[in-house]
Design a protein around this nucleic acid. Sequence first.
DNA 1: TCTATGGATGTTATCGGTCACACGCCAGCG
DNA 2: CGCTGGCGTGTGACCGATAACATCCATAGA
Lengths: 361, 361
Amino acid sequence: MDVIGHTPAGGAPRGRSASIWDVARVAGVSQQTVSRVINGKARVSEATRAKVLQVIAELGYRPNRLAQALAGGPARSVTVLTSDTALYGAAATLRGMEEAARRAGFSVGISVLEPDLEPAEVVLRLNRPGEAVMVIAFDDVGVRVLRALPPDVPVAAAVERRPGEGAGHSAGHSAGHSADAEPWQIWLDDRAAAAHATRYLLGLGHRTVHYVAIPSSTSALAQRTQGWREALFAAGRPRPEPLQGGWSPRSGYLAVRSLLADRSVTAILCGNDDLALGVMRAAREAGREVPGDLSVVGFDDSPQSAFMNPSLTTVRLDFEGLGRACFGLLHRRLDPEAAPAVPVWSEPELIVRESSGPAPS
Amino acid sequence: MDVIGHTPAGGAPRGRSASIWDVARVAGVSQQTVSRVINGKARVSEATRAKVLQVIAELGYRPNRLAQALAGGPARSVTVLTSDTALYGAAATLRGMEEAARRAGFSVGISVLEPDLEPAEVVLRLNRPGEAVMVIAFDDVGVRVLRALPPDVPVAAAVERRPGEGAGHSAGHSAGHSADAEPWQIWLDDRAAAAHATRYLLGLGHRTVHYVAIPSSTSALAQRTQGWREALFAAGRPRPEPLQGGWSPRSGYLAVRSLLADRSVTAILCGNDDLALGVMRAAREAGREVPGDLSVVGFDDSPQSAFMNPSLTTVRLDFEGLGRACFGLLHRRLDPEAAPAVPVWSEPELIVRESSGPAPS
DNA sequence: TCTATGGATGTTATCGGTCACACGCCAGCG
DNA sequence: CGCTGGCGTGTGACCGATAACATCCATAGA
């Protein structure tokens, strides 16, 4: 195979698509000049630049990102590590991340973390040492992976709670983003949201509120659980043990089945909307009416919740915004000068619908 | 917190992680021999292989996939092109694809196709010319992208229907996969499933069945719509115009709102479960009882459908299996010798629950 | 007129691998 | 004893880019 042989259409050797060399040859300049035009960094005369751009268009040339990355060009790819792409929260966060990354010209990789994954082995999934990573760490696998990541990989993470955070603090719109120890973590104020939902239910006259928890991401008390408990404590109400649920409607259904025989249970807060769906079915089967007999409140505001029967009172969480902000954080970390400001995301917001109402008299 | 692959002992120059050269030097062989050991292709003496493997472990060496791909190594990455990662069908398919790809040692990229995307521009998102691609083409953007893909990119796609397919044919378990014109497309037998669901409703005594369609992926009649119509035709029943819905519960709700005033409408088949959810809500608001007054059947068997109120009769589709099979197809295409057989996936199956029942007398 | 200056461009090394081919060695064979 | 043929291994080119450094040329200052 000849090295710089002639080419059919004046472009690339047969089969291969145009490379920077092909462009350089046709434009009558060196490949370095083409590189300069592409990256727009160094100065190139206007005439040369125009010529090169024209040849690029003619040949349909497109820089090979692999080669760029190999040669030490700026980072232009991220890998998202997440547990379950089918869960609404994770899926929505992923969508936000992907959108923001794509807009910034990054290519996005994805790797799903199985529950039995050995955290240290995730590095083997990266395309190269030092590849940038975003972790959706809403569960314990995610958190463990996050912890096991070598210090040389640039990372930003959407987490359930900020490890070691003291009292809740939120600076205006940007709840959860601070500049100390690990400024590359980002989260929603689950605790405040859970407390808010709990107070809402108490305000409806319920004696207390029960809670069905999603799996915790850490050994410590989950933020939602904590917010719920704090609200009960502050109001001087009984604090029942939280029920442990999973992520699915079925797990919510199973978790509360036995509880519902107790008519004194009149309000249940759920760790997500799917759990709430399962809880409402269990309630029907137990002969309890929602909301007449029993108020149910969910978390997440999934697309279905407004159409459930009864429609679900829930806490709307801006997962997409969180995902976008997470990428923003990573971007600033990778390229402090060029990266735009981290976009804001919305505070959790209680959406009152049909599934909650006054306590039965 | 010591991590595998982090801080090589005496291998690599400061900062950089170990390369094939470092391994070669420490092991006292050439880098080509290391490459042979890694890829396991060519024959290497047992002693040498052991020595190299040991050094690899010591240094925490990990091959750089970028460099491998650049140098023309075997394809070990795929990019999935899909429209909306939040929709159940697409999300489940993606999950199947990712799982299968990861298991086969592929890294998975993802790129979301916005509705207003210029199909020809997707090639710009690929990491290199000729990168392998999987398309989830359940809607028209996906189909257009699929069509616009240059012939040199290896592709496999999960599609709604097989373009130009004549009468339904299925070879044993592998409905929809044949070896002619475009053997890299894969699909579920939507038409048969829709026909089956329609016959089921007619069998319950309904005079006819109405249909709320998801957006079609082509200008031609969608497979689900067609199956529905054929079943009605075969049974000699009236064939009402299909109602056009979107993907969301809201669109289902809006699509049928006016229809429900007509009490002669007693059975509605929906293009997906979300639409069905919206339809059931519209029914409630119109004072129609499900299933007493009105039977509703969905499509997909999303995780929520079993817990809706009433629980939803629906057609279970094996999206994950479809995704796995799609990757299988691609894998065989990329590497006919090494790739395992394409895994099978399940046929659509009608799951009867509470939302359907005998026609009102 | 000679030279310092700086913008525009070319040259060479490098990134971390794979591939095609050459080479040395030892056994089997005529 | 010389040839042939595998097997195990090393060598050099190449993949498609970027970075550092070298070079060329024109213009301005001495």
